[in-house]
Amino acid sequence: MTVGFASGTDTLEEVATTESTDLDQPWVVVVWNDPVNLMSYVSFVFRSYFGYSEAKARTLMLEVHEQGRSAVVSGTREKVEQDTVALHAYGLWATFEKAGSE
């Protein structure tokens, strides 16, 4: 991911988040890092599409950025298929897979 160089308003908050992605469900949506999508935009998508808090969206976005991938949501196969297409509509690079296949 990249940083919009003209921003300057993106406040870096130190967040001790106890939220984690619930991986009890059998399928997950994985978002992959790419050099084009803006960090702010990826956070925005996680907030607006999944309804995540600002802190959780940011944590997941940083996981994608730093680790190259992050399982951002879990659920039934039908749900993860739908979420993957929705993220493609936003332009994110997303795939779905069985939980724990990484």
Binding site: G4, F5, T9, F44, S48, E54
Partner: peptide
């Protein structure tokens, strides 16, 4: 590319601010 990046960043910042 840099212009469109700047534009998108500014739009997303405004949207994040609005949602807050």
């Amino acid at each position: 590319y840099n212009f469109v990046t700047w534009l998108q960043e500014s739009l997303v910042q405004a949207m994040l601010k609005a949602s807050r």
